[in-house]
Nucleic acid binder design. Structure first.
Lengths: 232, 232, 232, 232
DNA sequence: GATGAATGAGCCTTCATTCAT
DNA sequence: TATGAATGAAGGCTCATTCAT
């Protein structure tokens, strides 16, 4: 039951804008792998944005802050992103990849019982939360800030949760079919509940100031909570 | 197992200015109950603020908006509240009363098994969420927006969650003593988990656009989830 | 060369508004003299205004401040004065009486040499400055603040300086006639210079934080400076 | 006894941004001197601020006014200066250079009798007042407005007067040593008095609406007043 | 006479956005 | 590509002024 977590997969692979492909190709041709300091400008900015949005909230972050953190000036941000919202969208896409896409890929490519998959799910999500606590915060903040704002952003957030729900649904249905999980409850309801638990954990952990101890306790509780829920 | 919920208790009880008390007495003598339009200005503003903060977030709400919604101008807001933050604090205090204080009072004054109390807890919280969805949103938004902001606000949010945790702790300890609940898990862990579930439900429900159907399903799931958690 | 300074004369005697005469008459008929706490509301307000304008400047003083200092609320101010500027005007009139009018009366009613009169002038002005340092500050501040503002206020300030110049002129002319003072310089120039010295002293003393020691040294220097100027 | 006054020295020498230095060099190479329209934006703003602060007082000047006068918008002001107070500070620093620094440099680098130096002092100060009447007004207004305001501003004003006092002290001590000036009075007292006269002249002249005729008369009176004071 | 409540204009300040270089 | 400079639209807050009671 020990899962190897290929760390490279956990790092963002964003769709590279056409403009940047040449630069990337050139860098690759020199045999350089992108270390931290060799990220493209846009990636540096996205990283800085994720960090700043996470710690101050989207509305409270200025592009000056983000640019400075990335080591550039505001102009650079506007060269690479249409506006502040576009930057947020890119950040969210990154988060989508790092969190749910990575988790989903890992779960799906692994053969095993539904129970194994459910545990794997929680494990990956927990690991993601631990490795990228900023991501989580961004997601929480944006998901809280935007219900009455930009449709594009809302859609992006929805997409992340849709994927999360889909993955859970798959696992539960498989469990029901294999007889591991109880068929007493509607799958939709279980998913809803599991998502809620998931979110709640994240939120609580975030409010605790991302205390690792709280994280550990919540992780454990989540797994057992999940299992109780699906098996009963 | 049906609890009567005195609705009057769910409404905020803020210190009423002397002037209004007289008015209230007079009105009562005529057999008249105060409708919304007879709230004090400050209360109208708080109400409007709660609404606006809920739908746009604290940072995105302007005092012009709030004032207009309350039927006044910005000046009136500043006449009654020191600044924007004070208004938020007042809103949070109201929420504290309406949500956890009311729930706690109801649970504590009722004799019954721990299981009854736990159900009562969920029921009251659900009812509060249904009756004051704005409150919930404000709490979520503020609790997400403030980790790097005003200490006073953070303290107020913490206070609400502290009370919530305390109440849950009481119930669980009582359940353990009476043998209703399993003693296998540390009370603190259970509380943590229940709080997470609670928050997650709220969050999910909020993200759903406060869909009543989702609310019902989550409510049911929460009770059974809670019971599974404490009894196992 | 010791001058008795009837202190009652140094206190403001403002033209009492018709509205207030009845109240005053009634109070007088009861045999009450107006002690500090028995000043009319308007006088209390003026006093408070003088104090506040002096310590914060006219622009930086709010009517709320003034009213509170006087023990009333803003409404009372507006009941007694048309607007903020009218209040300032009243304050300036008070100052005119307390400073130059009092000095002029004292100098003129006293027979003696021009030298005596000049010394008396300085002495009275110094005493006024010591007893009502606030007045001085108001005068400085207003005279500095208003060159491009309200004509009425400017006129009032000008009036004070006109009276001051007139008095000095009288004294100097008398000194020239009696042979005490040199006829070498034009009276107008001397007056100008003396006024400048006077103002400069006031300003310096004010900037020193109305330090009494500085006041004493400046007073001495002023007298000898004045005498040197007129006698040479 | 005729002093040549290198006018270039009377103009502010603020640290010139690198970019402008290049521009200056280029312009100089073309034999072109910079006219007003070629000042840096920051300098234009400072100039406009000095003008506006002088005519309306610091508190009564809005940054909109200042920016407009400089030919920009408020945003530009905030791009170059942290806030309104920083702008004031910058203005005061300019004034310090133009007034006392220039005077002090001229007096100290010139060999001559103490009497010459004292005359030179008055001459330079008078010339400064004539060439930069705005400066004077700003100094008066700020020094009147600030006793209860920003410490930084107060410190800056104090600094200017400290330098003025220091210079006078030097001259007087030299005069006492050389036997030109009377040793009867304490140097500190003389300085105090001279400063008062200086201030008073400035104030009076300012109140006169910077009438050149008054300026001339005051200048003459000041020199003779100064000499009488120190020689007696 | 005096108060509390409310208004509205105005100011300082921030910040996303644009643009010439 | 990236920067510095400038803009303009808000938003928070203050305060003189009005008015009903």
């Amino acid at each position: 039951m020990s899962y190897s977590l290929p760390p490279s997969k956990l790092d963002a692979i964003r769709p590279v804008p056409a403009r940047l492909q040449r630069a990337n190709a050139r860098a690759a041709s020199v045999g350089k792998t992108f270390t931290e300091s060799e990220l493209s400008t846009a990636d540096k900015i996205i990283k800085a944005a994720a960090e700043f949005f996470a710690s101050h909230g989207y509305v409270n972050s200025t592009l000056d802050d983000v640019a400075a953190l990335a080591g550039f000036t505001k102009g650079a941000v506007y060269y690479h992103f249409k506006d502040k919202e576009s930057l947020l969208l890119e950040v969210l896409k990154c988060i989508e990849v790092r969190s749910i896409d990575t988790t989903a890929a890992a779960v799906r490519e692994r053969s095993g019982s539904a129970t194994d998959h459910l545990e794997l799910f929680v494990r990956y999500q927990t690991r993601w939360a631990a490795q990228h606590p900023r991501d989580l915060a961004v997601l929480m903040l944006v998901s809280a800030e935007t219900p009455h704002t930009s449709e594009a952003v809302r859609a992006q957030v929805r997409e992340i949760y849709r994927k999360l729900g889909l993955l859970l649904e798959e696992i539960i249905e498989a469990g029901k079919r294999s007889g591991e999980f109880s068929k007493r409850q509607i799958t939709g309801d279980i998913v809803l509940y599991l998502q809620a638990v998931h979110d709640g954990n994240m939120m609580l952990w975030y409010r605790s100031g991302t205390d690792p101890e709280i994280g550990r306790r919540l992780g454990k509780a989540t797994i057992s909570g999940f299992l109780k829920t699906v098996k009963d």
